[in-house]
Every structure is written in C-alpha cells, then in structure tokens.
Design a binder for these strands. Structure first.
Lengths: 230, 230
DNA sequence: ATTAAAACATGACTATTATCAGTTTTACTC
DNA sequence: GAGTAAAACTGATAATAGTCATGTTTTAAT
C-alpha cells in the first residue's frame, strides 16, 4: 500500500493542487494496477469507471481510422493521467490505451476525481489548463498532418520524442517504437516510413540500431522538420 | 445597450449556467463590437484581454503553417465563444480569428470570465466539458487528416458544413466558402480541391453555383467520406 | 540452440497530389 | 455596362506516397 501524499508522480500532475485531506481520500480509495507491455488498458468506446494515474511506464493512445489503421494520437507517461477527457465529459473514451512497456498505475474512481473538480477551484482550474494545453497541441498536430509532407513529419516526430522522453546513457531515444508505431504517428504506410528513416540515416541526421534511434545532426533535422532543408 | 439576461445566444453557450447576478455583472461590463467580412478579430500570438461571445456571424480560426499556408482549424458561430482556450490557459492565442461575414459580438473582459470559473462550479464544469468536447473533435480531425485521402476529406467537409450550418431555402449550404478556404480546411492545394469538387460534381454527388454548394446525393457522398465508394 | 513468427528492408510499379503555366469566369468598381 | 482584379478552372508534368511482392534480420518461444 502506497500513499498519494508521498507519491513523487503527484508533483507532475494536476493532483498537486489537492490538499492533504483530499489526497488522503483518494489514497484510501485508489487501487494499484500493473499492465504488461502490449496490454490493453482501455478500449475506444468504453465507459471508464475512473481515471488512471501513471506511476511508471508509457501508454500509447490510438484511434481506429475507417481504413482500419490505428492512428497514434499521443503518449501518456509518468505523472500524467489517462482517461481525464472522457471522465470529465462523462462520455465513453474516444481513444484506446495500450501499454508500450510494463506499467504501474493507480486507478482513481470517477466520483473522487469529479468531487474534487466541484469542490476545489484550484484543482478544476488546473484541469481546465490541462485540457487547454492539450487542445493547443492537438491544433499543432492538425496543421502538421495536413500541411507537411511525410519526411518533415517523421523528422518532427523524432525531435518530439526526444523532447518528451529524453535519451538513454548512450544517446539513443529512451522511447523505443516499432516502425509501424512511428508510421501510425505520422499517418503513413509502414514501408514509406522505413524508407524515409533510411533516407535520414543516409543523410547522416540520425542513426539506428534495431528499434533504437539516435539523433546525430539535430540542427539539420530541425531544418528538415520545418521544410527548410531538402 | 442590450442585456445578457435576455440574449438568445446565451442559451447555446456555457453562459447559460450563470445566475442572474453573475449575468448582470457581465452585462454591465461587456462591450458590443462589429466586424466586417474579412476583418481580423485577433491574430495568432496576441494576448487577449477577454473573450468574444458571437451574437451573429461566422468566424474562421486558422493557424499559419511553416509552409506559409493558413490551415483552418474550425469555425465559430452564433452562441459560441471565441478566445476561450487562450483565456483559460492564460496564454497568447494559438489561432487567428477572421470574420467570414459581417459579425456582431460581445466582448467580455477576462476577469469577469475567469471570476465565474473560480466562483461557480457549474460554470467551470461547463467549460471543462466544452474543452473536452473540442478535444475529441480535434482527435477526429487528426485521424481524418492523417489517414484519409483528399477526396474523402472534401466529402467529409461538405457533410460537416451542412451539419454545422445547415441549408438555405434553395437547398444550398448556408455557409459560403472560397475554394481556397475549402482547400485550407482539408489541407491541400487549391487546384487539387477544385479538381476533386469537379469530380464530385461529375459523379452527381454535389452541384455548385458560384461559391454555393448543394448536396445532391447525400448517401453516396457519405460513402465517399468513409472510403466505401470509388 | 533451433525454429517460427514478426518486424524490417528494398525494388518495381501505381496512384495520388503538388506545381506551374495558362485560360475562363465571376464579382466588383467606376 | 465596360474595365479590371480576383477567383475559378484546366492541362501537362513532376514529386510524393501507397501497394504489392519478396528477401532479410530480429525477436521470442520452445
């Protein structure tokens, strides 16, 4: 049994605005869950009974397109909360959540979450700002997807993955994705994605080793992402 | 001078959850503004001093892409509020707002809007649900943009415009957009957009008269939008 | 360690979309 | 209502991305 009050993860999520009593209330009613790599956390269209606070690991959130491909909408990792949007909207989820690696999460039943939104204005303001921020990010993605060619989107994705998850000791991106996952981020055929990664490799902007990717010329890669370099 | 209490528009926006005193407070401090067709309401990156409640007219919200094209992210019309996201996030706007036709809006200074979020839990819950809903829509757009070919996106856009703004007496879409605007919704070259509209016309799914568009075979158009028809 | 399955990679070809150049139509001003 | 600028349209061509076929490497399970 662990206590929310002491959880480091709390510092990064909206939960930081809750007072000790509110936290204890949540602490008493949460349940700890583990998910294995590849395991389904929740599916698109499910009604959630609460939110999932991620203590460890990374989850990918995808949406099934009418052509049968899963589009990756975003990743959720340590200190972030899964299922916020649908819980707040009181709707079924619009996304599917899958564990990218082994995960530990705390499940917080809906009513404790919603209760705090109603009672604690600082918490609800935090949630509002969270959603506002997500919305801005979504707008950026829309523009990139509609206006940029695939090569730019891949360059951008690699830079974004570095920013979000950082590097390991050897300098490789900490997050390891299959080529298919990458193609599902940029919305392209897996073969096209592989080919363009090879191109970036030949141009000396990245190097790879299996699933691991290293940025070797960040400046030029940024130029590619912005369409200034061919 | 008009009173928020009596404003029909209020019924459609989050403002409906405010009580008479809160409404009077806003009513006393709002200013009425007019914008002409094509006029700039606010630019990307501006700090807004408040939100704009749309009483009449339609505004397009765009974001400039690095390739110099404006991507249309969404439209805001009667009963909806402009500048919500950036006001809540306390950030500069991430979108540019332009009047698509002559507009009448009420400007509500920031602090009256934020005050109600802090004091009235029903209002802040309404705002949360608003943002949650926008976020879901944004996810849908991301999937469409990344996974669907241009023809499908155009079909979808036409159907979406009918749903959002309806038809005139003759059965044409009420909203009238230039070919360039349509191409900036689907994120394509204007010429490609024109060509695909012609194709849809030849296939008998729509007909056009100048800027006016009429859906003549809704069922098939829906199939095209979903990729079931070629 | 062996083997089967999955993921990765590449080539050949096709389909889609963008670009450039030009013409026609529409809408607006005087 | 003629003149003009902007928008709409069309064609030719190039660039981009998707599909299908096939071989190779990596991964994971026995």
């Amino acid at each position: 049994m662990s206590f929310c009050e002491k959880c480091i993860v709390r510092k990064f999520s909206g939960l930081k605005t809750l007072n000790p009593e509110e936290l204890e209330q949540i602490s008493k009613n949460k349940t700890s869950l583990s998910f294995q790599k590849g395991e389904l956390i929740f599916d698109e269209g499910e009604y959630l009974k609460g939110v999932y606070c991620v203590r460890h690991g990374i989850s990918k959130l995808t949406k099934l397109s009418s052509n049968g491909k899963d589009q990756i909408i975003k990743f959720v990792s340590n200190g972030e909360v899964l299922g916020q949007r649908s819980t707040i909207a009181n709707e079924p989820t619009n996304l599917k959540a899958i564990a990218l690696n082994d995960m530990e999460v705390c499940f917080i039943p809906k009513n404790y979450f919603l209760e705090n939104i109603k009672k604690n204005p600082r918490f609800s303001m935090e949630m509002l700002q969270d959603l506002a921020h997500e919305l801005k990010e979504a707008d950026d993605v829309i523009v990139n997807m509609s206006q940029k060619p695939v090569k730019q989107r891949i360059a951008e994705t690699i830079l974004h993955l570095e920013n979000s998850f950082g590097l390991d000791e050897e300098g490789f991106l900490l997050i390891r994705l299959s080529r298919e996952d990458i193609s599902n981020i940029v919305g392209t055929a897996t073969e096209s994605c592989i080919r363009l990664l090879s191109t970036l490799k030949k141009e000396g902007l990245i190097s790879t080793s299996g699933k691991r990717i290293m940025i070797t010329d960040k400046e030029t890669l940024q130029q590619v992402a912005e369409g200034l370099h061919h």
